[in-house]
Design a protein around this nucleic acid. Structure first.
Lengths: 331, 331
DNA sequence: TTGTAGGCGTTATCAG
DNA sequence: CTGATAACGCCTACAA
């Protein structure tokens, strides 16, 4: 038994004594076919274990039933969540996901987006670092395109974004309500758009005279947060707002080592609600980014684009505050 | 300006005043072409922003430069790690990854594997739950195939597996060396092959009279571990071997709530070394599964299969013990 | 070295 | 309702 070649539509047609066109019609359930012929086709297809070639179908019909997802970093729970939910949603509609990780490299990201798009029906792009100009210029050739986690007015493609500003405001308000009037913000990567948004939202609160703010350079990782614990303690603030949960958990760990009790002596809040935040000691007050919804909504837009049906309006998802053990009344 | 159609090889050929064959040759760097013609082709291609259609190329040449990865659960750090490293390795060779998640559903897994394979050049399959019989029967039609995280002698395809037994043995030996003679094993899902391996390895140690073992039914999640903390304490064992890190961290949390100090009163070890294990309180002693290497080696085998070159021998990666703060001398 | 022609497996358009 | 026939975009003998 040599290497087995998959059955083609031609074989099935011959075996069933019909034309390829009829086989195609039967397989696709399109325009009605005489019951008897249909039965013969089904029988032949089953006997031959025939499966239409997705590749050939892609060439002929221009649809690959595949959508591409380009993300900067698959180690990030946010993108992992998006990957999962988008994959599930697409899967339910019999579409597959092609995933490409750019490793935060914008140049690579551009090339990957171009290339990934060419072999798929649509592209879902998460490009937090890409400049609006580049994105605006690139977008047209990437269509059908859905932009995630990033609002770019210059781009006509549907966008599903996260209202980080509102999330941070809610977090700050929560702390304010607990009597904290001076907050330390552990800043993420300087090039991060979402970091800029967070910072901007915080500055608005200081401008409104509601809080005092210490901005401490930090980074996006646990280690960064851990290293910044000392600076946070020295800052004179009574609460720490971390760039994300990883950083917050790092701060928790760092403060613990420094003998600073959380939340008694200092409150800490994160952002993202990664799985462990519910289980750290103390458990972490944070804001949840609804990645499930992002994927779901992203898929709805992809589908609309592909079907030519009305595309749902752009969405700005508001993170939900999750109050846990790391925040309490100011000392 | 209506919707723009991507340039085809025909357009380039016409523009350059050559035949399609010549354009094809130039684009693929195959058999030498007169420098002047090549220059014309390059110029035309550049002017038209021509990019060969990957889909058409796939149909004609039978290569899609895409490989499929099927995993049971993308929430699992193990598979996330494999996804990342495999994706990176494939990417370096200009291949893309099609990812499909079966949600632990074996029936769905079978269908996904079949389907995913048909649209790609090869399949990398992680199917911890699939029976050896089914797998053996399915494998031939899935080739070129690389099996991950699962040793199945009946299958001829290359396999990269993890020696969980050795990992567990090393962990148990570590505890034994600390004076623990009675261990509680928090068992994972009954259908999990890796769980069976862990259990088997542990039983060998009891059969050898080296340790006493309490097997406690548990599960694979943090919540399962948390819930099992009480049972672990009552078991009479002085150390807990958890099915994985998630469970171990859950136990840590549960024991903390019960007022049991770790590692003073009880030692706890996990398995996987997920990112957070280095930062929990106490930090978790565990065993690292080298996901980076898995992806790397898996890709090497995929490539060999596709190139028709000699396929590297099957690999059994041994986890590396990481001793941290959750294990200490028996009380 | 270059061009011609046929084929990859489907779908879609027309006749009949 | 069914069957030729022409795309789809590219690759690859085979010929010249």
């Amino acid at each position: 038994m040599g290497s087995w070649r998959p059955a083609t539509i031609n074989l099935v047609a011959t075996r069933a004594g019909v034309s390829r066109a009829t086989v195609s019609r039967v397989m696709n359930g399109k325009s009605s076919v005489a019951p008897e012929l249909a039965a013969r086709v089904h029988a032949a297809a089953a006997a031959l274990e025939y499966r239409p070639s997705i590749v050939a179908r892609g060439l002929a019909g221009g649809r690959t039933s595949t959508v591409a997802l380009v993300v900067p970093d698959l180690a990030n729970p946010l993108f992992q969540g998006i990957l999962r939910s988008l994959g599930q949603a697409a899967g339910r509609a019999s579409h597959r996901l092609l995933v490409a990780e750019s490793n935060e490299d914008v140049a690579a990201e551009i090339e990957m987006a171009r290339e990934a798009r060419r072999r798929c029906d649509a592209l879902v792009l998460c490009a937090p670092r890409m400049s609006a100009e580049v994105l605006a210029q690139l977008a047209p050739e990437l269509e059908p395109l859905v932009l995630l986690n990033r609002a770019v007015p210059e781009v006509r493609s549907p966008q599903v974004t996260v209202d980080y500003a509102a999330g941070i405001r809610d977090l700050a308000s929560h702390l304010e309500g607990l009597g904290h009037s001076r907050l330390a913000y552990l800043s993420g990567p300087a090039t991060s758009a979402s970091n800029a948004l967070r910072l901007h939202a915080l500055h608005e609160l200081t401008d409104a005279g509601r809080i005092q703010l210490d901005v401490l350079p930090c980074g996006p990782s646990f280690a960064d947060g851990h290293a910044a614990a000392g600076a946070a303690r020295e800052s004179g603030s009574t609460a720490v707002v971390a760039y994300n949960d990883l950083v917050a958990l790092g701060v928790l760990s760092g403060l613990h080592e420094l003998g600073v009790r959380v939340p008694e002596q200092m409150s800490v809040v994160g952002f993202d609600d990664i799985p462990f935040s519910a289980y750290s000691t103390p458990t972490l007050t944070t804001a949840t980014v609804p990645t499930d919804e992002i994927g779901e909504h992203a898929w709805a837009r992809v589908k609309a684009l592909l079907d030519g049906s009305p595309v749902p309006a752009d969405l700005r998802l508001r993170p939900r505050i999750v109050v846990r053990g790391s925040s309490a009344l100011a000392p």
